[in-house]
Write a protein that binds this DNA or RNA. Structure first.
Lengths: 229, 229
DNA sequence: AGGAGTTGCTAAGAAGGCGTCAAGCTTGAA
DNA sequence: TTCAAGCTTGACGCCTTCTTAGCAACTCCT
């Protein structure tokens, strides 16, 4: 399960560096941009769950950037500024920002505001909920998978197994590891379970179950989820 | 579409009065409470879209109140305090508040933060008096439902359950979430309740209770309210 | 080539989720 | 105090899912 992606937008390289290390230490994925134009570009390319946006930047202002992004996205936005006037705050919030912080600020507060903002994200936009893999779309909240064009309903164990494999793509996972992760720490020898369930998953997910594209056998080791580049 | 309802919780009658007039002037509906206990009671009775919650109150603290309400509701919460320490802010935000303001504050900023918080609310809950779904008409203020041609009387729990499901249409709601939202934060394992009440709702609302159109089971997950189209 | 171990596949029995009903219990109004 | 409405609890049957067993196909080793 991947973590939230945060886009940091600030023209000051030192602030970008500090934020990056702070956020990565918390387990977030971090992308950054030096100005509004770069930010828009990043938004088009990558999935982004939250934006930390400096108000005062050369070129397109933070407010403009915010308004533009908000007009086409539900991403969470926290604005930063050195100025602490009420008019600024009102302007930022009305431009679509979810929150507003004045520099300097302590990282505990920033992190708390980030947690609060991410909590509010609609489930559909937050990248935590669905993952696209090849021609499959895996939805973690409904525990359903769209394989090719059709909806597939997986049983709890089937889904847990798939989820674990997808979380570690292109790496052979030993039988024991899979069993312990999906069935619990007391399991590890019951390789029969894996044979049955991998078989079911292939029948439900693979176009040609006898020549699997994703759920590959690693003989004498375990199974591997193949993520085509 | 009626306006948003805001619940103001503060022990200081003067602050309640000031907030009330400010908010009403903006076209919001205002309810108030003097302490955490009263707030919980109001939340049970009325629809509330946003909570303005003082941190420092006699009896149950603002933080406790916030945590309790958040555990069973998606309402927007803005916390107020006279203290401006970082620890306080972090505590408030992690207790489930969406935003935090230190007194004294100007009303433009408060209003901007209210607009920002309301913008984030799921559209369905904010302000709708009645919802028409297929051949059903659900009235949230009278707590009555018209299914087909006839008035249906729902019990309090039945209505609460329906209301929560309708407020999150087309999304599977886990058993635990439903139980905590309808029965309270101490519930979560009592899946039998759901079986019984969903069954009752289907008998009262669905044309063909054994082949439901609206109240669908999401096997191994929970239930989903199906809003056609 | 033959045996031992591994994997793919199928199907039957066991376990558990869900729908349904009805009887006890609680609570508040008369 | 009594009564009725509504909530809680238990029982039962149906159905899905998990576990288990069996066999064929295959690989590795001698």
């Amino acid at each position: 399960m991947s973590s939230a992606r945060i886009l940091v937008v600030d023209d000051d390289p030192q602030i970008r560096r500090v934020l990056r290390t702070t956020l990565i230490a918390q387990g977030y994925e971090v992308v950054d941009a030096r100005n509004g134009e770069e930010a828009l570009e990043r938004m088009r390319g990558d999935r982004v769950d939250l934006l930390i946006l400096d108000m005062n930047m050369p070129g397109m202002s933070g407010i403009e950037t915010c308004r533009l992004i908000r007009s086409s996205s539900d991403v969470a936005i926290i604005m930063l500024t050195v100025r602490d006037t009420e008019a600024d705050k009102v302007e930022a919030l009305d431009a679509g920002a979810d929150d507003y912080m004045t520099k300097p600020f302590g990282s505990p507060e920033l992190l708390a505001r980030i947690r609060a903002a991410l909590r509010r994200l609609p489930q559909t936009t937050s990248g935590l909920q669905t993952v696209r893999v090849g021609d499959m779309e895996i939805n973690f909240s409904t525990r359903r998978v769209i394989a090719g064009t059709r909806q597939v309903r997986l049983t709890p164990k089937e889904f847990d197994l798939l989820q674990y494999l997808v979380a570690h793509p292109n790496v052979p996972i030993p039988h024991t590891k899979l069993l312990q992760s999906v069935w619990g720490p007391d399991y590890g020898d019951e390789v029969e379970y894996l044979r049955v369930f991998i078989n079911q998953l292939r029948k439900k997910l693979e176009k040609n179950p006898s020549d699997p594209k994703y759920l590959l056998t690693e003989p004498w080791v375990g199974y591997r989820f193949n993520l085509p580049q």
